[in-house]
Structure formats: structure tokens, C-alpha cells
């Protein structure tokens, strides 16, 4: 039944939506674009869902589709101003009592990530999520050696941005 499949999909997606939000926040810098990308990822996930056999974890599968959408399929509809990201709008949606210090640090991290290119953004995300090189090489489709080289470069780049 399509209806059952739909309910199951929405329930799983709702529970794991954090993953998509992390990808969205990595690849966009205002909440309109964030929502736009979230929607495109949702459409792509739903399109691919009937083929999801559960060979991998739902979250791993979601990561792959989300990154693919952000890197290859998504076209920015509005011009984004990369020099002055608009974080103010995102703040309106904050939970009450959100940890201010932690929030500041996350902003700092995302600001640094935003200056990377699309592939480096994916690597930064996979690093922060503590994925191993095998999984990184599988997700991106490059050799483990290449993944290591690229990861080291991305980390160096990030460190340089964080400690100028």
C-alpha cells in the first residue's frame, strides 16, 4: 500500500530530520534556501524510498541522498550573498533557552565551513560526524587514499580559517 509506505517514510524522516538539517545548514546560509534544499532532499528521498531495502541504516542512506542532492542535484534558486550570511532569520526559530555559548561556537564552525567548496563541505560534515575513511570513500566514490588526502587538506583549511 502506498499509504502505508508514505506513513512509514514520513515517520522515519521526521525522526531523522536532523541529518538533513545539518546538510542544509552546511550548504546554505539563509533559511529560505535551507527550506528549499530540505524540500528537494525530501522529494529525492521519497523518490528513492521504494528501493530502500534496509541493507544499510536509514540514516546512512539518508546521508548519501542528502549529500548527492546538495552537491549534484540542487540548483540555487536565489542568488546567495556569500560575504554576509544571514543568520538572523535562523535565530528567530531557535528553541527557548538555547545554549548561547554553544550557539556561538556552532555559528563560528558553520561560518568556516561556508568558505569551503562543495566537496570540502561534504568532507567537513563527514569528519564532524566521525565517519571512518571506508564510509567516506564509499559515500563520495573515491579511493580511501584519496579520501585521506582530501580530508587532511580540508582539515588544514578549516584550522587556518579558525586560527588565522
Amino acid at each position: 500500500m502506498t499509504k502505508d509506505l508514505e506513513h512509514k517514510f514520513v515517520a522515519e524522516l521526521e525522526g531523522n530530520q536532523n541529518i538533513i538539517h545539518k546538510v542544509c545548514r552546511t550548504y546554505t546560509n539563509n533559511d529560505a534556501a535551507h527550506k528549499d534544499l530540505f524540500q528537494e532532499i525530501t522529494i529525492q528521498l521519497w523518490k528513492a524510498y521504494p528501493k530502500f531495502r534496509g541493507d544499510s541504516k536509514f540514516s546512512t542512506w539518508m546521508y548519501r541522498v542528502s549529500l548527492n542532492t546538495a552537491i549534484s542535484l540542487y540548483r540555487k534558486t536565489k542568488r546567495q550573498i556569500s560575504t554576509s550570511p544571514i543568520y538572523d532569520n535562523l535565530k528567530e526559530l531557535e528553541y527557548e533557552g538555547y545554549n548561547d555559548e554553544r550557539d556561538k561556537q556552532m555559528d563560528l564552525l558553520y561560518k568556516a565551513i561556508h568558505s569551503l567548496n562543495d566537496i570540502e563541505k561534504a568532507l567537513a560534515l563527514l569528519y564532524l560526524e566521525d565517519k571512518n575513511y571506508k564510509e567516506i570513500s564509499n559515500t563520495l566514490g573515491i579511493s580511501e587514499v584519496n579520501a585521506r588526502v582530501k580530508m587532511n587538506r580540508t582539515k588544514t583549511k578549516l584550522k587556518n580559517i579558525l586560527n588565522p
Binding site: 514520513v10 533559511d31 554553544r102
Partner: peptide, 30 residues
């Protein structure tokens, strides 16, 4: 920062089931 990242709680933006239903019916612009 990685430690802070891993300790982060739910994202600031969350969508309800109803919102997700609406989204999955939208047309792809890929």
C-alpha cells in the same frame, strides 16, 4: 568544535509530519 558539534541537540529548525507530507508532494526542481 567537533565535540560541540557532536553534543548538539535537535536542530533549531524542525518540520512536523504535516509539513513533510506537503513537501514530498512538491515538484522537484533538480
Amino acid at each position: 568544535l567537533k565535540n560541540v558539534w557532536q553534543k548538539q541537540e535537535d536542530c533549531k529548525i524542525t518540520f512536523s509530519k504535516d509539513e513533510i507530507y506537503i513537501m514530498m508532494r512538491q515538484k522537484s526542481s533538480s
